[in-house]
Design a protein around this nucleic acid. Sequence first.
DNA 1: GTCCAGGATCGGA
DNA 2: TCCGATCATGGA
Length: 281
Amino acid sequence: MITNSKSVAVKCGGFSAKATLTSGQCFRWSERGGRMCGTAFGRYIELEQDGEYLTIFGSDEDEYEKVWRSYFDMDSDYAAIRDELVEAEPRLAQAAQYASGVHILAQEPWETLCSFVISQNNNIPRIRGIIARLCLNYGETALRGECAEDEAEGRAFPSAERLASISEDKLREFGCGYRAEYLAGLARGVCDGSIDLDAVRQAPVEEARELLRRIKGVGPKVAECALLYGFGRLECFPVDVWIKRAMERDFKDCENLIRGKNAGVAQQYIYEYIRHTAQHN
DNA sequence: GTCCAGGATCGGA
DNA sequence: TCCGATCATGGA
């Protein structure tokens, strides 16, 4: 727990830190003592929210402007995005209202791509566990990381160089299963330059999709998630089992929903809504 | 024991 | 091009 440290309070409109950080787009945040705690961009922080006011413990105004403002996508007008989405597809109204506090995080491309390679045919608690073990064993201690109650939480995600140095057997020990081969190949490719994430970042979205899908272990869904959550491509629309069910049940024949420039936001609203209203939850 | 999870790959039709 | 089997793992 961060105490006796600097902090910064910001007005955040309709943003919900908890809803955003538990919405399945990231795997490294957890709630502890009423705060959301986690590490991104090699910096550990804790968040406390009271209505429109968000206090970031451990951070200051300068770091907020430099790092967190864009990470939490504070500059997009989500109310306006919702209005546009609902106008184009009225059936989205309920989900959009329900999940209105959710923003699309601007995460680090490398970590995001790895995370969603691990996510395939896997469930969220287990994905979180695998990533936590990787960070604990191979991640650098984050700035302020020693304040984290859970040690893995105070570590940065391992670099490509570090991951590339781990054997596939070792990755399997951490629970990666058959994905160990994919993760190792991805790390090696980034190190030797055959995989160029900066080229992905600069490419038009369709070309970016192609580049990502060339990577073994990266199919349509993982590419779409990486682009949406790690490369800021809000038009990307990942379809997992939950979204597929929701689309078949509630959004039959809605090209206008999945093709818009903010389709990814709509997708996140639907995901959040369906996951919290499903029967067996 | 079976089913499922923010799926992708592979071989065969 | 499309379809089914298969892939590790742990919780329900």
